[in-house]
């Protein structure tokens, strides 16, 4: 679904991510692990087109999207849940979903309903200003908003960071439900190895902007393997 080859990117003249190769197979979850400052978020921003790629290519389902604007990549099937439970804070929760659904007509409305089925608690909060929701509620809203775009690839940047444990479970359950059908591919960035390594088909460890280690997720030794690569 997603193929990064030799991706180099950064801010201005400072390159943060160097020569990264990474693949997310159709219907699979690929995890990128790394400590703070390893370049994980920078890499995701390049995948989305929020940062220009200085070297290498980004291909989505075989199509080279390296030069496409972010909103065009979204229309081709990439959805992004950025770090930090971001929402359109002054819009209501309902408007946060509507503004995305507007662009997708009837399909957008149907997907809004489906996304709310995934997080039923959000239905009670639709009239609330998004900026006044709790961190966990905002993150659920962010995932729902991403799903309204009708993605083939869901890109999640530390989706449970700073979120209370019971909501963490809900969010991970939702991700599992989404991937279980096999039609959605997921690129998951995490600092913590638990869920990511357990559920990923493959994982990569990023150190100083380079892939320092690759491993297979799910198996018995996977956690130990990832732990060692992260020098934990």
């Amino acid at each position: 679904m997603l193929e990064l080859s030799g991706v180099t990117t950064g801010y201005g003249r400072t390159m943060v991510v160097h020569d990264v190769d990474l693949t997310v197979p159709d219907g699979a979850l690929t995890a990128v692990l790394g400590h703070n400052g390893a370049g994980k978020t920078t890499l995701l921003r390049a995948v989305l087109g929020l940062l220009p790629v200085r070297g290498g290519t980004v291909r989505l389902a075989g199509e080279d999207v390296t030069a496409l604007a972010p909103h065009k990549r979204v229309r081709r099937g990439i959805a992004y849940v950025p770090q930090g439970q971001q929402s359109f804070g002054q819009l209501s929760a309902r408007e946060n979903l509507q503004v995305v659904a507007d662009a997708h007509g009837r399909a957008g409305r149907r997907r809004t309903d489906e996304a709310l089925d995934l997080f039923p608690a959000l239905r009670e909060l639709l009239g609330r200003q998004a900026g006044l929701l709790s961190g966990g509620q905002r993150q659920q809203l962010a995932i729902a908003r991403a799903l309204v775009t009708g993605p083939r690839l869901l890109v999640l940047d530390e989706p449970v960071e700073g979120i209370q444990p019971n909501v963490v479970t809900e969010i991970y359950d939702a991700i599992s439900t989404l991937t279980a059908a096999g039609s959605l591919s997921v690129l998951l960035v995490e600092q913590h190895i638990g869920y990511a390594v357990e559920h990923a088909a493959e994982f990569a460890v990023l150190t100083s902007g380079r892939v320092a280690h690759r491993g297979q997720g799910g198996g018995e030794g996977a956690s130990a393997d990832a732990r060692k690569a992260l020098a934990l």
């Binding site: 989305l48 604007a69 909103h71 929402s87 359109f88 503004v99 662009a103």
Partner: peptide, 25 residues
């Protein structure tokens, strides 16, 4: 209106709007 929602979304968080499929330009 949908246009109004789009304007407010882009004004509040340009990157998030782009990453949600809204053309900020």
């Amino acid at each position: 209106t949908p246009l109004g929602r789009r304007i407010r979304a882009v004004v509040q968080n340009r990157d998030l709007a782009e990453a949600s499929g809204i053309s900020s330009r």
